[in-house]
Amino acid sequence: MGGIVLIVLAVFAARRVWLGYPATGAEFAVLAPREEAFLQAAAEALFPPHADLPVSGGQADLPGYADRYLAVLPRRQRTLIRALFALFEHATLLWPGKGRGGFKRFSALSPEQRLGVLRDWQSSSLALRRLCLTALKAILILGYVGHPESLAALELAPWKIDSPRVEADFLYPPIGGHRDQISRVGEPLETAPTAPPLVPGLDQEAP
């Protein structure tokens, strides 16, 4: 009897964790389809369409952003971040969404249920839950607000800066490169840069 219960639980767990995620065709260096589905669902809930910003979370390719971020993290930290995604995806077993089907994994909830779940994490009396939400938000906000269209709409687009050559630029090759890749073009700056202060609008990149 115990064995049957274990088998049923294992099938349930496997089905919940691995099965039923749609193939989107997107290619990632790190992310699995289940993580892509979670991130897309979280992005849509966190950043709905709004008049102040031209793209919504659902349009900002945040799974792609998260994948690029994970790819440059050390292995241990990458594992922790992926565990965070899995936690949110399946913590609905402990803290379900409101209404019917609230125990489904996060990415299978309705948009209203997802927002409610995130609000629960935000207002939780457990500091650790609030902290986890802050960590998730931190990853996705950097991708969303850092999206070129978001920054342009907020008049916060990056500066156009042509870096002057300093002496040190003739010493260091590109990271991972060889010293024959050091560009010898131009003279090194001998004194302090003399370019004037930047001007918002004028010296920012065009959207």
Binding site: A45, H50, L53, L115, L142, S150
Partner: peptide, 25 residues
């Protein structure tokens, strides 16, 4: 800091959060 990094400081989720991003300037 990078504007998006500062936006991490904003409380809330959903529309209220995005509204606060609109206040960044």
């Amino acid at each position: 800091s990078a504007p998006a990094a500062l936006a991490v400081r904003m409380p809330g989720v959903g529309a209220e959060l995005v509204h606060r991003f609109g206040e960044l300037p």
